[in-house]
């Protein structure tokens, strides 16, 4: 194994970001998207109602083939909340970020578990940390936090160190308040 391996996938990003964005708009004309850019990837912003169609297109279109869901990140932008999906294509070697801003007070997003089994735990995590509701998720319950603890610690409104832990020996009953 001393000589250099030949790799079956393209090394580095093959399609430049600008043409990748154009390609998405060309291949998926029915989905209204906004194309932007982050420091690392192309960023596609889409409304929650179009997310499922977009992701299905991204996964199945022959030139895109985003077969790997890397990550789901929730972000609390105070006035509203957004989800950031990171995708990668093993076939073509390109990466993409999909941003889904949700309406304030109505954080409902379609679940991607039926497309990517990997989305399962990521969505559960975003659910417990931010209160996103993933419609169609088979098992949307707490993952990292206690099962009956219905707080969303990563919201900006949630204090860092204000938890008041009661041990049951004070006047009130055991538990904790925020």
């Amino acid at each position: 194994m001393t000589q250099e391996q030949t790799l079956p996938y393209p090394v580095g990003q093959q399609v430049p970001n600008a043409s990748l964005g154009a390609m998405i708009q060309r291949l998926l004309p029915k989905v209204p998207v906004e194309i932007g850019e982050t420091k690392t990837d192309l960023d596609v912003t889409v409304a929650p109602e179009h997310l499922f169609a977009l992701v299905q297109g991204l996964r199945d279109a022959k030139d895109l083939k985003f077969d790997f869901l890397r990550n789901i990140t929730g972000v609390d932008l105070v006035e509203s909340m957004a989800l950031k999906y990171a995708f990668y294509s093993f076939t073509h070697g390109h990466a993409l970020q999909v941003t889904v801003p949700t309406e304030a007070g109505h954080p409902h997003v379609p679940s991607l578990v039926s497309l990517y089994p990997a989305a399962d735990w990521h969505e559960r995590e975003a659910h417990e940390m931010f209160g996103f509701v993933f419609d169609g998720h088979p098992n949307l319950k707490n993952l990292l936090l206690e099962e009956d603890l219905h707080i969303h610690p990563l919201l900006k409104a949630h204090p860092l160190q204000k938890a008041d832990i009661k041990q049951g020996i004070e006047d009130s009953s055991a538990g904790f308040t925020f």
Partner: peptide, 22 residues
Amino acid sequence: IALGITGPVLRATGIPWDIRKA
């Protein structure tokens, strides 16, 4: 890949995918 597995566990399935190269 569908399950989101990476690292040595993914490479054990036969894909030489390593971010240090990809």
